[in-house]
Design a binder for these strands. Sequence first.
DNA 1: ATTAAAATTTAGTCCAGTCTAAAAATTAGT
DNA 2: ACTAATTTTTAGACTGGACTAAATTTTAAT
Lengths: 237, 237
Amino acid sequence: MQSPGLLITISAMPSHLDLNSRSVQDYLKALYKLQQQDAPVSTNVLAERLQVAPASATAMMKKLAEAGLVEHIPYQGCRLTDSGRQQALKMVRRHRIIEQFLQQVLHYGLDEVDEEAEVLEHAVSDKLIERMWQVLGQPSHDPHGSPIPDHQGRFPEQSARPLCSFSPDQPLRIVRLKERSPAQLRYLHQLGIEPGAVVRLVDKAPFNGPIILHTPNGQHPIAWELAEAILAEPDTP
Amino acid sequence: MQSPGLLITISAMPSHLDLNSRSVQDYLKALYKLQQQDAPVSTNVLAERLQVAPASATAMMKKLAEAGLVEHIPYQGCRLTDSGRQQALKMVRRHRIIEQFLQQVLHYGLDEVDEEAEVLEHAVSDKLIERMWQVLGQPSHDPHGSPIPDHQGRFPEQSARPLCSFSPDQPLRIVRLKERSPAQLRYLHQLGIEPGAVVRLVDKAPFNGPIILHTPNGQHPIAWELAEAILAEPDTP
DNA sequence: ATTAAAATTTAGTCCAGTCTAAAAATTAGT
DNA sequence: ACTAATTTTTAGACTGGACTAAATTTTAAT
Ligand SMILES: [Mn+2]
Ligand SMILES: [Mn+2]
Ligand SMILES: [Mn+2]
Ligand SMILES: [Mn+2]
């Protein structure tokens, strides 16, 4: 028995995602940072990073997938498509240029720039970003030493290695502090450890134990885990 | 006949309005600008200014009234309370400091600053605003010559008057260009009319007709209406 | 191989802020 | 003073982005 004459079509089609919303931009950036090699990023890890409920991340992944920005394999996680990575890199560029500007021009500390940039990156125009970059003299790195991708998403050469991978006595120049909390950055600053500083590895305990580092203002033990996030290069040039 | 035992209380109480949303901030700022003397601002005028439907403005007014930021007399319009004006002035300060910063530090043109500031004003922290103000040398005016209110909402002294209120031949210094569109600002710039420029009123047609103005780059007729928005003062000091 | 635990998705709500269409109040025209 | 035009408010709906609780799938442990 067919009810005649009434056809209701529910079209959940368009939903044409606003690429420029703060949320979308932050999800893409987070995905980019969590995505090591080719392993897909777990929805929960993503949710944790962005401080939202797992269900919220899942919902967003469905939208981003529909927009062709991520590939979502249900129950397995997701990875950025080329187009998604492009967007993400654009945000990374913005973030890092803003950080550099805050430090150089407005005298922000290393531990303060990230919070402000996290908001500003969504509000500034392309024009403003490029003006900042010009005024700064076209920098290739942010104040933490992280490289700034160019418009094609290419990074400058990086030859630096983690502190803990060097052998003692060689003079080293700190090049980059990776993704540390403001409190950790303040601690490192106080120890004389920041990009550009010249230091020397004094000793290295076995079995990934702490290392002893000679810095411009003293000699300090550093946990292996932390030393992995401090990138340096030989101070020859 | 009373249905027994079931009492449903619908409490539409809290709805504790987020003071820091972009919308709220823009509504307050718009109200402030539209509010001349003590006449309440019409909902429709407000809606027009913010490019939203009248119904949207009404809805927002109800919330702002509930939050004590405006006084809303239904069908008559609304005016800011002291608390609302305070918020609005804070936004005016932000907007103008940002404009000055964009012009001075990032070499924006007079016609470009407003659009960018309109977005940034909602994204920058108090700290960043004050840093900009310091780096700029604590300016008292924005690039259009509009005064920057201080933290208590007080404005610097203003003795300037509209161009059309002066009598011919006196040398005048342009002090401020009020609320003009980017296109008008470009036009004025091209005529040599911008804050700081020294000009001379050559002639004034009767009945609020156009005025003739001698500027650093020529002699130009200016509509009365436009001349009202150009503030100047005698060029004696 | 079952079962228990953990991760993930679905279903159903909520809230801010907008919209359109209809109703109500105000203002203007005669 | 009445009607007509205009302004303003109400009613109802929608969207983006979040949430909680429940269902489902995957993974880990026996
Ligand atoms: Mn962000
Ligand atoms: Mn950084
Ligand atoms: Mn604004
Ligand atoms: Mn201005």
